[in-house]
Amino acid sequence: MRVGGSGLQRAQRFVLLATGLYRLSHLVVALGAVVRGTVAGAACWVLLGTALAASALLFGTAHRRGWFAPAWVWADVLVTGFALPVGASYALGLGTVLANPWTVLLGGSAAAAAGAGLGLRSVAGAVAVLLAAPLVAAQGQATGALFGHLSSVVSSAVMARVFWWYLTRQGTLLDRATEQAVRAEARRARQAERMAHHRALHDTVLATLTTIAAGRVDANAPEVRERCGREAAYLRRLIQRDDEPGCAEDGWAEDGCAEGGGCREHGRAEPFAEVPLGAALEEAVRGAECLGLRITAQYAALPGVPRPVAVALAAAVSEALNNVLCHAGTGRAWLTAAGTGRGAVVTVVDRGAGFDPGRPPGGGTGLRRSVHQRLAGIGGRAEVDSAPDEGTRVELRWPA
């Protein structure tokens, strides 16, 4: 449940508060009238106690339930709105009621509770009862004050009903908008997860299969078989995964996880805990070396970085090395990684065939998704410098 409840629940709480304060204002007036009164003081205190008890039952029950109980609303109408003024008229005398009509005044707040807490037909019935009360209490002697109370009963019921309708409508619209936003966010999350899996498959399984199909490595070599086994395990986890987030973005290498990572086998890690960047990059290097690429790697003063940063940099390096294997026409690459304070610069260079930056190999899908998008997602920047027959240089910089 959302913090603060739904829009409808918030509307109900507001109406309860407003009608409760309205009743409280009438009770304060009643208390002042009883304290100042001199006629039949004990009886007045009994009547005030009855009003207080009826109010406590009505609003106390509503507070516990979250909304008015129709039975208690009717009880309040009959006791506070009708029996109290009529009883006061006959117990204290007509003159007392007309001179100090606080018992009639309570009918306005009873009408407000009825207007909000009852159905439309029931509201009409409750208002009729409340309109009859001051007329019966006045015993046929109409006064301007009583006509004012009649108007107060009607206006209180109407305003409470209108406020309740408006707030309910706004609350419902708010709930619908929130539900649509939640659904949209869920769709975005699913799309992001699918893209993460697509990138991981492109960087791992597809790169391995492409290299084997091109005959660049011996498929029976132990290191190649080991890599294929890890990637098969990753595919198996991906297929068998239920609603648990996948491991595509949680690890450095081709199997999508590392010790202490976010995969099912190793439990969950703190997503923004700092991890050694060098270990993540070395895992990517070893993965490419399994497919026969010779890599000269140099690391200098690499800092610890948040885990998502290490994951993205390692994945981008994997894609750059895969591109050397698949497109550069060379079996050699150089990787250098150096710290820059709290950041890092990683460079992958080859002396292969190179390419026209306007027409990247494979349509540029790997560079766009696995390199540029990954770096942009962590606040970094990727630059690719290449030309036909002049090799390729990929520079990854974080932060940008």
Score class of each variant (00 low, 15 high):
Leu105Glu: 09
Ser151Gln: 04
Val123Phe: 02
Ser25Arg: 04
Ile295Phe: 01
Glu395Gln: 14
Ala258Pro: 00
Gln141Leu: 10
Thr210Ile: 02
Ala54Val: 11
Thr296Leu: 00
Trp45Lys: 04
Val46Glu: 01
Ala189His: 08
Glu390Phe: 04
Arg332Ala: 09
Ser55Leu: 05
Leu8Ala: 14
Ala312Phe: 10
Trp45Val: 14
Glu185Val: 01
Leu94Asp: 06
Ala110Asp: 08
Leu131Trp: 11
Ile212Met: 12
Arg199Leu: 04
Gly117Tyr: 03
Gly377Ser: 14
Ala376Thr: 10
Trp102Cys: 00
Pro357Arg: 10
His63Lys: 01
Leu8Gln: 08
Asp242Pro: 13
Ala110Met: 04
Trp45Pro: 01
Ala51Asn: 12
Gln298Asp: 12
Ala157Asn: 12
Ala314Trp: 03
Gly366Thr: 08
Ala316Ser: 15
Val28Trp: 11
Ala53Leu: 14
Arg332Trp: 05
Asp250Phe: 09
Gly287Pro: 00
Val205Leu: 08
Gly115Gln: 02
Leu238Phe: 06
Ala142Asp: 05
Met195His: 13
Val28Thr: 10
Ala71Asp: 09
Leu94Ser: 07
Glu383Val: 14
Gln12Cys: 00
Gly358Phe: 04
Gly115Met: 00
Gln139Arg: 15
Ala186Ser: 13
Arg23His: 06
Phe59Glu: 03
Gly49Ser: 11
Thr211His: 07
Gly140Glu: 05
Leu201Cys: 01
Leu118Val: 01
Leu84Ile: 12
Glu395Val: 15
Glu289Met: 07
Trp165Pro: 00
Gly7Met: 11
Leu321Thr: 10
Cys257His: 15
Val275Met: 02
Ala91Leu: 15
Glu231Tyr: 00
Leu173Val: 13
Gly261Trp: 03
Arg351Val: 06
Val79Asp: 01
Thr210Trp: 00
Gly362Leu: 08
Met1Gln: 12
Ala387Pro: 10
Thr103Ser: 06
Leu321Glu: 06
Val224Lys: 04
Pro245Asn: 00
Gly379Cys: 12
Ala280Pro: 02
Glu179Tyr: 05
Gln191Leu: 14
Gly256Ser: 11
Trp252Asp: 12
Ser370Glu: 10
Glu179Leu: 12
Ser152Gly: 08
Val29Ser: 13
Gly304Lys: 04
Gly352Cys: 11
Asn322Asp: 15
Ala219Arg: 13
Ala280Asp: 06
Leu131Tyr: 07
Ala40Phe: 12
Ser155Glu: 07
Gln373Cys: 03
Gly278Trp: 04
Ile212Trp: 09
Val394Ile: 15
Arg183Leu: 10
Pro360Arg: 06
Val15Asp: 09
Val349Met: 02
Arg286Tyr: 10
Val73Tyr: 03
Ala71Gln: 05
Pro306Ala: 04
Ser109His: 03
Ala219Met: 10
Ala221Ser: 13
Trp398Asn: 04
Ala248Thr: 11
Val104Asp: 06
Thr330Met: 08
Ala316Gln: 12
Leu277Tyr: 06
Glu244Gly: 04
Ala11Ser: 15
Val182Tyr: 07
Pro271Asp: 12
Ala145Arg: 01
Arg241Ser: 14
Ala160Trp: 02
Pro245Trp: 12
Ala279Gly: 07
Val345Glu: 15
Ala310His: 02
His26Arg: 10
Leu367Trp: 13
